[in-house]
Design a protein around this nucleic acid. Sequence first.
DNA 1: ATTGTTCTTGAATGGTCGTTCATGTATTTT
DNA 2: AAAATACATGAACGACCATTCAAGAACAAT
Lengths: 194, 194
Amino acid sequence: MPRPREFEPDAVLNAAMLRFWERGYRAVSVEDLVKATGVKPGSLYSAFPGGKRALFLKSLERYSKLVVPQKLGELEAPGASVDEIRGYFDGLVRDLLSPEGRQGCLLVNTAIENAAEDDEAAAVVRGHLARLERCMTHALENAARRGRVRASLDCSGSAKLLVATCQGLMVVGKANPEEALLRAIVDNAFAALA
Amino acid sequence: MPRPREFEPDAVLNAAMLRFWERGYRAVSVEDLVKATGVKPGSLYSAFPGGKRALFLKSLERYSKLVVPQKLGELEAPGASVDEIRGYFDGLVRDLLSPEGRQGCLLVNTAIENAAEDDEAAAVVRGHLARLERCMTHALENAARRGRVRASLDCSGSAKLLVATCQGLMVVGKANPEEALLRAIVDNAFAALA
DNA sequence: ATTGTTCTTGAATGGTCGTTCATGTATTTT
DNA sequence: AAAATACATGAACGACCATTCAAGAACAAT
């Protein structure tokens, strides 16, 4: 009986995610979202109860499920090793240097902008960091088994360090997107593993 | 002839800096600043032409001149070496774990929140990163001369990595202020130098 | 064709934003 | 004592904020 929806909620969520990604939670107004999606306030609020913040939290989850796996790529494969870590870092550098990728990582931005005042957002960020650390640890263990890193390497600890390094890479890259600088960071991070 | 000021502009600027530090630029309203300083809008705007944003930029500079040197401590001394780098990192961890220090670093927060849309703010951040890198490079060179790090170490590149590491430390610490995690990051960053 | 249900629309809400300005006040010089 | 000057006050500004809601519209079932 009901009248059918005229828009795709997933498409709306995607547009919202992109806005939050490039401008941050506070900088995006509902009017911005209305313009970006073509969906009027009333419909937005009925499709996403909880309004702007709910849309933001759903954006974080969507980012985790859709964008992150694409960036992680082979690093999440069971056989991942040093090359896959390297590939991930190279991808980060490439993104930071490209005009579209300068927005960095939505979850890093959220850690800084919202983690202190929004526990739910912080939880999503923590989940992301844990996932990243898991990948890195696993890849380092594979690498150790294959003799691609020094035998004395603390895989779990080094994974934590690598996670911090890529967060730092994004902070540096956001303020100072210079290829030589970013490459030096990545190169030296890897020199430490050998 | 004129009526004298009833407030200390430096004290006002300090209060503003603290607010921006803990909540971010967008999250702080002028009304917040009025409440925090006791100075009414009219006086605020006449003492700080340019309003909120000027106050923010001045806060960044004040932070650079007053807070940063205190955190850097001996690391800026000519004779600084590994121990001073370590001291700096330990201080960061201590701060991130303390209730007052969870706000992280104003300049890191600014890199994420404002660098993309505010060139002047980004320039201050870049200056800070350059200063940090200069300290680190100098300390590593001292350390190399004294045999405290491996001879093959690329001081300039490792300094860049250490800068990124402490930015990353602050991102991780903001979302997940766990001592064991932060210590592991620092320990492994130093293991890479030996 | 009518009814029931959900959706769309866009104006309106009350609140807050950053900023300005007219008025009154305190102080120093004349 | 009076004039001149800079400051303090806080109400008022228009703009924008997130959100709500009354009205009309589109479809499915009858």
